[in-house]
Amino acid sequence: MIAWMALALIAVAPPVAPDEATEARNETFTGTVLRLTDAIEPLGVTSPQGPIADQVVLRGEDGSILPLLYNVGSRAFFEDDRLRDRPAELVVRRIEGLPYLQVLSAKIADDSGVLRTPEYYCDICTISVRFDQPCPCCQAPMELRFKPED
């Protein structure tokens, strides 16, 4: 009987959607994307070793250090040194209670200092992607460039 009642309660209880469980909001942050070790060295903190040494953070203009989740939006920052240590503007999803930022889109300063969207581009197939990889079509290497402004 008790097992039947428990099943009945489970059956009628509405599922909790992830958005209902935690509050999330999109925000824009500006600063510089760095490896964690480079961000904390000026603070006199010994550079960490092991997996945390590869962590990438946004050092805000106010000096705050915010870690980035590894996802499609931030993957290029983790894998390509050329995109770090430049002024950046990140649109992120911030989840209440989670100290990490989930990157939705990013603009970084090109060589002339203009904030633009980085992309990896194949001239042969005219395909662009968000992180370095062989071209999904022809498998040729892709070139890092900054997306032309509209």
Rank of each mutant, 00 (worst) to 15 (best):
Q55K: 04
V45F: 15
I65F: 06
L98Y: 13
V16M: 14
R86V: 00
A17P: 00
L34M: 14
E96K: 09
D80V: 13
G50S: 07
R25C: 08
A53I: 04
E20C: 04
L34A: 06
K107Y: 07
F78H: 05
D54G: 12
V92H: 00
R86G: 05
V92Y: 01
T30L: 09
P42I: 13
L101I: 02
A39S: 08
R86F: 07
R25G: 09
V56M: 06
I52L: 14
E79T: 12
L68Y: 03
G73P: 08
G113T: 09
T28H: 15
D62H: 10
V56G: 00
D111S: 12
L69H: 09
L58Y: 01
P99T: 02
R75A: 01
I108R: 02
G63Q: 12
G31H: 01
L66V: 05
R116V: 10
D85F: 11
L43C: 11
L69M: 05
T46G: 06
K107T: 09
T117R: 03
D62L: 15
P118Y: 02
R116Q: 11
A21Y: 12
V56C: 02
G44A: 08
P48K: 12
Q49V: 15
V56K: 00
L83G: 02
D110F: 02
E89Y: 00
R84Q: 11
I65Y: 04
E79C: 09
L115D: 11
V103T: 03
R84L: 13
G63D: 13
L58M: 04
R35S: 00
L115P: 05
Y100H: 09
L68C: 05
V72Q: 12
R116N: 06
L101P: 01
Q49C: 09
R82H: 08
L69P: 04
S47D: 03
Y120I: 13
R82G: 03
K107E: 09
T22I: 14
D62S: 14
V45K: 13
R59L: 03
I40T: 05
Q49E: 10
R86T: 08
G44T: 10
V57N: 07
P42W: 10
V57Y: 09
D80F: 01
R86L: 08
V33M: 09
V56I: 12
I10T: 14
P42R: 11
A11C: 15
P18I: 13
E27M: 06
P14V: 07
A11L: 13
A17R: 04
A8N: 03
V56A: 02
P18C: 14
P42D: 10
S47G: 01
G113H: 03
L66E: 01
C122I: 11
E119Q: 12
I52Y: 12
L9H: 03
I52G: 06
R82C: 06
F29H: 14
V92N: 00
V114F: 01
R116C: 05
V91S: 15
V72L: 10
L83M: 11
V45H: 14
D81E: 10
V45A: 15
D54Q: 13
I10W: 15
V12Y: 06
A17E: 04
D19S: 13
Q49I: 15
A109E: 06
A109K: 07
S64N: 06
F78L: 11
A109L: 03
